[in-house]
Nucleic acid binder design. Structure first.
Length: 660
DNA sequence: ACGGTGCATGGAA
DNA sequence: GTTCCATGCACCG
C-alpha cells in the first residue's frame, strides 16, 4: 500500500488568502501547490475525483469507526503546503491524528465538524488501493432529501465549496469533473445562487452519480482529492455505516482550513466517492490517534492533561520543538550513564539538559576544536572553546575566554566571507541531511513530540504510534540524531547513531522507558509524601509563628505557583538559564505544577527559538539567522534524554526525571 | 400539466 | 443577531 495521505492543509488550495505573517515558523517545511486557474470560464472544465472511502482504525473493514479527519485548515499559508504528517503503521492500520495547522482557531472559515471527513478502514483501503496517490479527504456531507431528490442538486456547504472547489464569480459556475471510486468520471455543474447577500453553492446533475452509488437521503457523500493528479474523488457511504459521532463536535479533532484560490489547479480533477483527496494515509492514521487520545482523555483526564494540548498549540510545539532540540545540552558536569539498546548507545543524564545558545563548531588552524557564537546584542561572532556552555542569551560580555573581545565595540574576528565559508562548509557536509530534514522538518518535530507523548504514556500500555515506524528524528535527540533518545556529538557523524537506526521503536527501548516511567512515578509518589510531611511541618510552624499571615501567603504562593516544594529545586527556578524543558513531566502532576501547562511550554519554546533562530538579518554578518539556525549545532556536550528533561517556565522549575 | 430553474423563506446552527 | 442551508415555490419553457 503505497498511498500516502496528507492532511488537508497540505493540499488545500485556498491558502493564498492568508498573510505570510501567519506562517507559523520558518522551520515549517512547505512546498508550493499548483493553483486553480483564476478564471471560471465555463469553457474550462475542472474535475474532481471522487476518492474512495477511508478506512477506520479497526481491522474490521466494514465497520466504521470514529475516524474523523479534520478538514483542511483555512488558515494555512497561502499557496503552501505545510507538511504535517500523520503516521501509518507497518501493518497498514489506519490511524488518524489531528493535522490541524496553526492558525485559524479564530473561527474564520472553519468548517463545521459535520463536514469533516470521517474515514473508514474500508474507505482507506479503497483509496489506498491505487498506487502512490496522496489522498486528501476534503469534506463530506449527509445527503438531504432534496440532495437525493430528483432535482439532482447537491447543496454544498458554502465553506467547503469555497475552500475546495474552484472559485466561481458567475452564478452559472463551472463544469466540474469528479471521479467515483470505480474511476468513472462524472461531470457536474458547480454553481451558486445568490441568497441573502450570500451564496448557495450547488452541484447540479448529481442524480446519476448518486444513483450509481446507490445513495439516498441520509447517506453520506465524501469528497477527497488525489495527488499528484489533483483529481477530485467522490465517494459514498451508506447511512448504516456512518460513524455515530457525525456532527458531534466533541469527537472532533480539530479544524481544517481550506487553502487559497490560487491553487485551483489542484482541483483540475475531482473524484466523487464521498471523499476528497488531500490527506496522506499517515495523517489519516495520526488523526485517528488523536481520536483515540481524546477518548482516552475522558478516562484519564489528569494524566492526559499535558497530552491534551490544543491542536493549535500543538502546532506551535511542532514548529518549535525541533529547534528546541538543537538548543538542548547537558551541563558540563553531567556524566551520562550509557546503555545499549539494540546496538545503539544511549546516554542518559541524571540532570536535565538546559537550553543553550546555538553555536557553530569548527576546528581552528591549530587543530583545536572551537565554536563560534553570535552576540545577542551586537551580532558579532566570537570564538569560544568547544566545551564552553553558553546560555541561550549570550553577549560579548560573557566572553570570558577572550577578554579582548568581551565588548560589543570590539571588532569581529571573522569577516563575513569567513563566516560564510564556515557556514557553507557546514552546509556541504550536511547538505544531503538537510534536504531530508527540510522535507520532513515538521514531521520530525511532530513525531518527536509524539514520541515523547507516547513514551510518557507507556505505562498505560499504549503502543508506540505507527508513525514511529517511519521516524527519522526524535524530540529527545540533538539536531542530527536519528534516534529517539540519544545524544550525539556536534558533528552529527557519530557512527553509533546510524541514519537508519530504528532502535527507538524497539521493544527493549520501550521496556527501558516503561521502567523509567515506573521509577519516575514511584519517586514522584515518594516525593509527594515527603512534601506532604514537610508541608505539615511548615503549616504547624507557620501557625505557631508570629508572622502567620505572611507565611501562609508565601506558602500558598509557592503552592499555587507550582514551584518546587524542594528548596533546592526552588533555587533552581531562579537560574539565569531560563528555558529549561522538562520533557518528562508527568501529566498527572499538572495540578501541582501550573508551570508545565502547554501554553507556558509554548511560550518557553517560542522564547528559546526566537532568541536563537528567528529569521532576521544579522547586522554584523549580514547572514540570515534563519540560515544560521539551520547550520548551528549544539555544542556537543551531552544532551537531552527523554527521562531527564526540564521545564522551567515563568521562573518555575520542575524536575521529575526518573531518578529524582 | 409538467419538469427544470432560480430565488425566497424559515428553521437551525 | 447573523449566517447557513434545506426546502418550498414561483416562473418559464
Amino acid at each position: 500500500m503505497n498511498t500516502i495521505f496528507v492532511s488537508e492543509s497540505d493540499a488545500c488550495p485556498f491558502l493564498a488568502e492568508l498573510s505570510k505573517e501567519e506562517q507559523p515558523n520558518p522551520s515549517v517545511n512547505v512546498s508550493h501547490l499548483p493553483s486553480f486557474p483564476k478564471n471560471d470560464s465555463p469553457t474550462s472544465e475542472l474535475s474532481l475525483i471522487a476518492a474512495p472511502p477511508f478506512r477506520n482504525e479497526t481491522n474490521d473493514s466494514d465497520q466504521v469507526s470514529a475516524t474523523l479527519l479534520q478538514p483542511p485548515s483555512l488558515s494555512t499559508l497561502a499557496g503552501e503546503q505545510v507538511k504535517i504528517h500523520n503516521g501509518i503503521d507497518s501493518s497498514g492500520e489506519a490511524r488518524v491524528r489531528n493535522g490541524k495547522s496553526r492558525g485559524d482557531g479564530r473561527g474564520r472559515n472553519q468548517l463545521l465538524p459535520r463536514y469533516w471527513p470521517r474515514i473508514t478502514d474500508k474507505e482507506l483501503q479503497q483509496i489506498s488501493s491505487d498506487s502512490n496517490s496522496i489522498i486528501t479527504p476534503l469534506f463530506e456531507k449527509m445527503l438531504s432529501a432534496s440532495d437525493a431528490g430528483r432535482v439532482g442538486r447537491l447543496v454544498l456547504p458554502k465553506k467547503c465549496a469555497e475552500a475546495y472547489f474552484p472559485p466561481i464569480s458567475q452564478p452559472e459556475g463551472l463544469p466540474l469533473k469528479v471521479h467515483d471510486l470505480k474511476g468513472k468520471e462524472w461531470l457536474f455543474q458547480f454553481r451558486f445562487w445568490p441568497n441573502n447577500n450570500s451564496r448557495m453553492y450547488v452541484l447540479e446533475g448529481i442524480t446519476p452519480c448518486i444513483q450509481s452509488m446507490q445513495l439516498q437521503a441520509g447517506d453520506v457523500v465524501t469528497f477527497s482529492r488525489l495527488e499528484p493528479e489533483g483529481k477530485l474523488v467522490m465517494g459514498g457511504r451508506k447511512a448504516s455505516t456512518v460513524p455515530s459521532d457525525q456532527g458531534n463536535e466533541a469527537t472532533a479533532t480539530g479544524d481544517r482550513t481550506p487553502g487559497d484560490d490560487s491553487d485551483k489547479n489542484k482541483f483540475g480533477e475531482v473524484a466523487i466517492n464521498g471523499h476528497i483527496k488531500g490527506c496522506t494515509k499517515k495523517e489519516i492514521l495520526e488523526n485517528k490517534s488523536v481520536v483515540r487520545s481524546k477518548r482516552k482523555n475522558s478516562v484519564f483526564s489528569l494524566r492526559s492533561k499535558h497530552l491534551r494540548i490544543d491542536s493549535e498549540e500543538m502546532m506551535e510545539l511542532k514548529l518549535t520543538c525541533n529547534q528546541a532540540q538543537g538548543l538542548m545540552r547537558s551541563l558540563p558536569e553531567n556524566i551520562p550513564s550509557v546503555f545499549v539498546v539494540e546496538g545503539c548507545e544511549i546516554e542518559e543524564f541524571e540532570d536535565a539538559p538546559i537550553i543553550g545558545r546555538p553555536t557553530i563548531p569548527e576546528i581552528d588552524r591549530f587543530g583545536e576544536k572551537i565554536q563560534w557564537v553570535e552576540c545577542e546584542d551586537c551580532f558579532k561572532w566570537r570564538k569560544v572553546p568547544a566545551n564552553a556552555l553558553l546560555p541561550s542569551r549570550w553577549t560579548c560580555s560573557g566572553n570570558v575566554w577572550g577578554l579582548e573581545r568581551s565588548l560589543c565595540s570590539t571588532a569581529q574576528q571573522l569577516t563575513t566571507e569567513q563566516l560564510e565559508d564556515i557556514l557553507s562548509t557546514t552546509t556541504e557536509v550536511s547538505k544531503e541531511k538537510k534536504i531530508t530534514e527540510q522535507n520532513s522538518d515538521l514531521v520530525v518535530a511532530q513525531e518527536g513530540l509524539d514520541a515523547l507523548a507516547n513514551l510518557a504514556i507507556q505505562g498505560d500500555g499504549v503502543d508506540l504510534p505507527a508513525s514511529s515506524q517511519t521516524r527519522t528524528k526524535h524530540a529527545g535527540c540533538k539536531l542530527d540524531c536519528t534516534c529517539t533518545v540519544c545524544i550525539q556529538p556536534s558533528d552529527g557523524n557519530d557512527p553509533k547513531h546510524k541514519q537508519t537506526c530504528d532502535f527507538a521503536d524497539s521493544e527493549s527501548l520501550k521496556h527501558h522507558f516503561r521502567t523509567l516511567m515506573e521509577r519516575c512515578e514511584k519517586k514522584q509518589l515518594a516525593k509527594e509524601a515527603e512534601s506532604a510531611c514537610q508541608k505539615l511541618h511548615v503549616d504547624t510552624d507557620t501557625y505557631l509563628s508570629s508572622d502567620t499571615g505572611k507565611n501562609c501567603l508565601n506558602q500558598e504562593e509557592a503552592s499555587q505557583g507550582g514551584c518546587l516544594d524542594d528548596p533546592n529545586e526552588r533555587k533552581s527556578s531562579v537560574s539565569p538559564l531560563k528555558g529549561q524543558i522538562d520533557l518528562n513531566i508527568q501529566p498527572e502532576r499538572e495540578d501541582l505544577s501550573p508551570c508545565s501547562d502547554s501554553g507556558a511550554m509554548k511560550r518557553l519554546l517560542e522564547d528559546a527559538t526566537q532568541n536563537n533562530f528567528m529569521p532576521h538579518r544579522s547586522s554584523s554578518s549580514g547572514i540570515s539567522r534563519d540560515l544560521l539556525g539551520k547550520q548551528m549545532q549544539p555544542d556537543g556536550i551531552g544532551g537531552a534524554s527523554l527521562s531527564n528533561c526540564i521545564i522551567v517556565v515563568d521562573g518555575c522549575y520542575q524536575k521529575t526525571n526518573a531518578d529524582h
